[in-house]
Write a protein that binds this DNA or RNA. Structure first.
Length: 606
DNA sequence: GTAGGGTTAG
C-alpha cells in the first residue's frame, strides 16, 4: 500500500501524527497486541490543531475545507485555532457557519471558545447572543462557559453590572470565577473594588491561587498602594508562592509602579529565577524616574544573553526619549531593525515619540507614514512632538487630519491640541476645541484640561478671563491650574493676581521649594526685599530639599549630565563651548532676558 | 481530537 499520497507536507506534521497516519493506511500486524486505528476525522482534527500551533493558518483552512465530515470537535478546533492566532473575526465566522449546519450542535467547548473570540473582538453584543444560546441549550451549569461569559462582560461592557449578575448566578464558584471578577475590576481601573473582591475570596471562601494573587498585586499597583502591596508580598511568602515567576513579576511591577525603586531592585536581585518579563518590568520601572538606569539594565539584559523583545525596546526607547539622546536612540533603532522587530504598533509609537522629542521630525514622520496601522497614540505622539517644539500649527493640522481619519480623540489628545494652540497663540481655535471636546465627544474637563485652557488664555494676555474661568470651575482648582495662571501673571505683569495664585499653590503644596522661590522673586522684583527674604526663610523651614535640576547635553555622540555648580573637570570646557553657541543664538534672536528673576534663581542654585 | 483566570510597552 502506498502511504505517501496521504501524508501531505511531511516535514510540517509532528512525528506522532505521521505515525498514526501511516498506521491508519497499513495493515495491522498479525501478532498481538491488536491495533485499532484512529478514525480519519480524529487524525485530521489533531493535524488541524497542530497547524494552528505552528501558525500555518492557510494549511489549517485547506484541510478543514477538504474534510468530508466535520464533527463538533473539528468545528471547535477551527474556532479556538483562529482565536489562538488572534483572528477572532474569522473564529466568529466559523461559529456562524457551524450554526447554519443542521447536523452539528455546539457543545460546552464550542461555546466557551466562541466567547473567547467575542472577548477578542471586544463585542459584548455578540457575547450576549452566545449567552442566549447558552441558556437555550441548558449549558449555564458549565463553569467553563460561565467563566468565559463572565470574562466577556467584565472586559467589554461599559460597567460591571452584567458581569456581577453572571457571577452571582454561578453555583459552586471556583477560583477561576473569582480571579476573572477581580481582573475585570482591576483592568478597568477599579483596583480598590478588585482588592475588595479578593478579600472576600480569601475570607468568605478560603480560596486563593497564584492567579488571584497576581491580579490582586496588580490591583495594588493600579491604586499605587505600596502598603497593601507589601501586605500581599508577605502573604505570598506565607503561602509559599515566592517561587512562582508570574507572581513575583507582579510584585516587582507593583514596587516599580508605587515608586519604590529600591524595593524593586532588591526584589529583582533576590528572585531565584528571572524571565524576559522580569527584565522588561524593571526596565519599564526605571524608564521615567531613572532613564540612565533603564538603559543600563537593558545592556545587562543583553549581556546575560536574554533576547530583548518589543516590550523591552518600547521601554528603552521611552527612556532615551526622556533624555532626548538622539544618537543613542538611533543605535537602539538599528538593533530593533537587526532583530526584525519592525512593524509593531507600540514600538513604532515609542520610536515616533523618541524622534519627535529629540527634534528629529523627519524620522518621526517617516515612521508614522510607513506604519501599516496607526492608533490614537501614534497621532497623539506626533502632535505632542510638534507642539512641544513650537510647531503649534503643524500639531493642529495633525489633529484635524486625525479626526478626518475617524480616529476618536481622547482626553490626552485634547491636552496635546490645547497645548499646541496655547504655544501657537491660536486662542479662539483652542477655545473651540474645548467646547467640541465637551459637546461632541462627551469628555468631562478635568483639572489638567482646565489648566491647559487657563494657560491658553493666560499666555495670550487674557489674564482676567483666565481668572474668571478658574472661579467658574466645577471643582477646586489644583496646583497645576494655579501654576499655569501664575505663569500668565508673571508674564503679563499682574502682581496682585500672581500673589493670590501663589498663596493658593502654597496652601495646596506647601512642601515644594520652587513656589517659595517664585514668590520671593515676585516680591524682589517689586522691591519688597523684606517679604522676599521672609519667603526664603519660610522655604527652608517648610519645604523639603529641592532636588537639583539636572541638564544633559550631547556632544560628538557622548552624553554629559550636570547640575548647576557642577565640577565636570575637562568636560566643563565642552559645556562652556555649547553655552557660548547657545548665547550667540539667543542674542541673534534678539531675546532680552528677564534679569529680575534670573539673578535670584541663580542665587538659590536651582 | 476541542474550552478557563495572572505578570511586561504608549
Amino acid at each position: 500500500m502506498n502511504a505517501r499520497k496521504l501524508v501531505v507536507s511531511q516535514t510540517q506534521i509532528p512525528q506522532s501524527i505521521r505515525n498514526s497516519l501511516l498506521y491508519a493506511v497499513m495493515e495491522p500486524p498479525n501478532s498481538a497486541p491488536p491495533f485499532t486505528p484512529k478514525p480519519p476525522s480524529i487524525l485530521a482534527t489533531g493535524l488541524l490543531k497542530s497547524y494552528f500551533e505552528r501558525g500555518l493558518i492557510r494549511e489549517a483552512r485547506t484541510l478543514f475545507d477538504e474534510m468530508p465530515e466535520r464533527d463538533v470537535v473539528a468545528w471547535t478546533t477551527m474556532i479556538s485555532g483562529y482565536t489562538s492566532c488572534n483572528l477572532h473575526g474569522r473564529a466568529w465566522v466559523v461559529f456562524c457557519g457551524m450554526m447554519r449546519c443542521t447536523d452539528v450542535r455546539p457543545n460546552e467547548f464550542t461555546l466557551s471558545s466562541t466567547l473567547k473570540a467575542c472577548k477578542g473582538m471586544s463585542s459584548s453584543s455578540r457575547g450576549a447572543l452566545v449567552h442566549g444560546l447558552v441558556v437555550k441549550q441548558g449549558m449555564s451549569a458549565s463553569l467553563y462557559v460561565s467563566n468565559a461569559l463572565l470574562d466577556v462582560y467584565a472586559t467589554c461592557c461599559v460597567n460591571m453590572d452584567e458581569a456581577s449578575a453572571v457571577f452571582h448566578e454561578i453555583r459552586g464558584k471556583n477560583d477561576v470565577c473569582w480571579t476573572t471578577l477581580i481582573a475585570g475590576y482591576t483592568h478597568r481601573g477599579d483596583g480598590y473594588m478588585g482588592l475588595n473582591v479578593f478579600r472576600r475570596m480569601l475570607l468568605e471562601e478560603g480560596k486563593s491561587s497564584p492567579f488571584s494573587f497576581s491580579i490582586a498585586v496588580r490591583a495594588c499597583a493600579s491604586v499605587h498602594s505600596c502598603t497593601y502591596g507589601k501586605q500581599l508580598h508577605a502573604a505570598i511568602v506565607k503561602h509559599g508562592l515566592e517561587f512562582s515567576l508570574p507572581v513575583m513579576n507582579s510584585i516587582l511591577d507593583m514596587y516599580c509602579r508605587c515608586g519604590s525603586l529600591n524595593a524593586a531592585k532588591q526584589c529583582f536581585h533576590e528572585m531565584t529565577q528571572r524571565d524576559s518579563i522580569t527584565w522588561n518590568t524593571l526596565i519599564a520601572g526605571y524608564e521615567k524616574s531613572d532613564p540612565y538606569e533603564s538603559i543600563s539594565t537593558y545592556s545587562s539584559m543583553e549581556s546575560e544573553g536574554l533576547s530583548p523583545n518589543c516590550f523591552t525596546f518600547s521601554s528603552v526607547i521611552a527612556a532615551v526619549a526622556n533624555l532626548a539622546i538622539l544618537s543613542c536612540g538611533e543605535q537602539i533603532h538599528g538593533r530593533i531593525i537587526k532583530r526584525g522587530l519592525r512593524g509593531n504598533l507600540e514600538l513604532d509609537n515609542a520610536l515616533i515619540d523618541m524622534y519627535a522629542k529629540s527634534g528629529n521630525f523627519a524620522s518621526a514622520r517617516r515612521i508614522f507614514d510607513k506604519m501599516p496601522t496607526r492608533n490614537l497614540v501614534s497621532w497623539t505622539s506626533m502632535m505632542i512632538g510638534y507642539g512641544s517644539h513650537g510647531y503649534g500649527n503643524e500639531a493642529v493640522d495633525f489633529f484635524e487630519e486625525m479626526v478626518k481619519f475617524k480616529v476618536r480623540p481622547d482626553r490626552i489628545a485634547f491636552v496635546a491640541v490645547l497645548n499646541a494652540c496655547s504655544h501657537a497663540g491660536l486662542v479662539d481655535k483652542g477655545v473651540n476645541y474645548f467646547i467640541s471636546m465637551v459637546s461632541d465627544y462627551n469628555i468631562a474637563p478635568d483639572p489638567e484640561i482646565f489648566g491647559c485652557l487657563v494657560d491658553l488664555l493666560g499666555r495670550a494676555g487674557r489674564v482676567e478671563e483666565a481668572f474668571k474661568l478658574i472661579e467658574s470651575m466645577p471643582f477646586d482648582p489644583d496646583e497645576s491650574v494655579w501654576g499655569a495662571f501664575l505663569g500668565a501673571c508673571k508674564e503679563h505683569n499682574h502682581p496682585d493676581l500672581g500673589k493670590l495664585a501663589i498663596r493658593k499653590v502654597l496652601a495646596l503644596k506647601p512642601k515644594i521649594a520652587s513656589t517659595y522661590v517664585v514668590l520671593s522673586n515676585i516680591y524682589a522684583a517689586d522691591g519688597k526685599w523684606g517679604d522676599s527674604a521672609k519667603m526664603r526663610k519660610l522655604m527652608r523651614w517648610r519645604a523639603t530639599k529641592k532636588e537639583a535640576g539636572r541638564s544633559s547635553v550631547e556632544i560628538k555622540n557622548q552624553n554629559y549630565s550636570f547640575v548647576a555648580g557642577d565640577k565636570m573637570g575637562s568636560h566643563m570646557d565642552c559645556v562652556n563651548e555649547v553655552v557660548k553657541i547657545l548665547v550667540k543664538h539667543i542674542r541673534d534672536a534678539r531675546y532680552i532676558p528677564d534679569l529680575d528673576f534670573f539673578i535670584h534663581d541663580l542665587e538659590d542654585g536651582t
